[in-house]
Amino acid sequence: MTKGHHPSTPTRRPDRAALFIAAVLAAIAGLIFWDVSRLTGTAGYSQVGPTTVPYAIAWCLLGLSIWTVFEALRGDFPERERQEVAPVIWIVAGLAAQMLLLNVAGFSIATGILFALTARGFGKRRLWLSLPVGIVLCFVVWVVFAKLLQLSLPAGPLERLFF
């Protein structure tokens, strides 16, 4: 791993990521134009109707997209730190697992998995340890918030074992 010393690309080369951002901005603007054009512009007594503001926002986004292209071509975007991809994937997997399992497995198990996978993303490799720790911790949290404070947190097999 190279620390602090990353390959400095020549600044004059067009920044491809920035061009991509410009394209995304333009796409959002297009999406707004497309969606809002279906609305009936019943403004009533105000000349500013439900479509006026979205159109204005879309035009501005389009302008910002062009501005971004200019900055990208001039290489005005700040240099980026090199990003590690693996930790991001671990954490996103944790969040996705929690989302999908929440209503099936209950709060403790789903969130315990999120906990363990996040710790994995930060370098704690021993899942056999962090997973049970996470589930127990989440169960305690569930008891406190769902039972004591009446927050509606989904219960699963584990929770129903005790309550």
């Binding site: 209503n103 099936v104 219960a155 129903r160």
Partner: peptide, 8 residues
């Protein structure tokens, strides 16, 4: 599909 089985 994800609905909780209703308990008693």
């Amino acid at each position: 599909a994800m609905a909780l089985p209703a308990f008693a």
